[in-house]
């Protein structure tokens, strides 16, 4: 497996492990970048490529699991844990928090490569999704404030009449806004727009029925 653009980050305090893993992955044609501590890893300037993090649980500065928690908010690469002696609670905790695998030293190359391949594939997908979402976000930001008001009403399924009443504007005006929204968000249909809204996590604020009930 040779994939030019991917990289594996190795964080382990034992230089022997770093060397051995580097060597092993090199033999598989995978680029690696090794760090001796969590701190080094966090501070390093990491390339924006599909990546995977091989993380030792026992680290000199902070525990690998804690590092996992710390970076959970950001867009970090999928993690494969490696440990000298794995216990069940740690394993469970790591997997629960999204680790791809939890390998106990010594491990076979097959297990390792399987975990790394899974992780890289995951990251590649996540990156693509993040890129799509970025485009959608930019489109959303290009909407006018009024159009941003119109969007959730429309995607909530309100009739034009209802949406116009909600905003206190005429139906004609609302239709103009709606057309603009569709155009700007590059939605081919209302269903498409609903899907986009979902991706952007725009909440469904109204339902048609509720509106009728009030009437």
């Amino acid at each position: 497996m040779t994939n030019d653009d991917s990289i594996v980050f190795i964080v382990d305090d034992d230089i022997r492990i770093r060397e051995a893993l580097g060597e092993l992955l090199a033999s598989y044609g995978i680029a690696t970048h090794a760090f001796a501590s969590a701190g080094e890893y966090v501070e390093a300037d990491k390339p924006k490529r599909p990546a995977c993090l091989l993380l030792d649980v026992e680290l000199p500065d902070i525990n690998g699991l804690d590092l996992q928690n710390q970076i959970a908010d950001g867009d970090h690469p999928p993690i494969v844990f490696i440990t000298g002696h794995g216990d069940i609670p740690s394993t469970v905790r790591a997997i629960k928090h999204g680790a791809v695998d939890f390998l106990t030293k010594p491990f076979s190359d097959a297990a390792l490569m399987q975990a790394i391949r899974t992780a890289l594939a995951q990251d590649r997908k996540a990156r693509a999704e993040r890129a799509d979402l970025g485009v959608l976000r930019q489109r959303y930001l290009d909407l006018t404030p009024r159009e941003r008001e119109v969007l959730p009403l429309v995607t909530s399924g309100l009739l034009n009449k209802q949406a116009a009443a909600e905003l206190g504007i005429s139906e004609v005006t609302l239709q103009i806004h709606r057309r603009n929204v569709m155009q700007k968000m590059a939605a081919v249909s209302l269903a498409d727009l609903v899907r986009i809204a979902e991706k952007l996590e725009i909440p469904v604020t109204h339902s048609r029925r509720t509106g009728e009930d009030e009437k």
């Binding site: 060397e19 598989y28 002696h85 010594p106």
Partner: peptide
């Protein structure tokens, strides 16, 4: 267990290196 960890560390390196060598 902690002794095992001490031993496992070099052993893991040995295993990984062995695989690499094989490849």
């Amino acid at each position: 267990a902690s002794i095992a960890h001490e031993v496992n560390q070099p052993l893991a390196a040995v295993v990984a290196n062995s695989h690499a060598c094989q490849r």
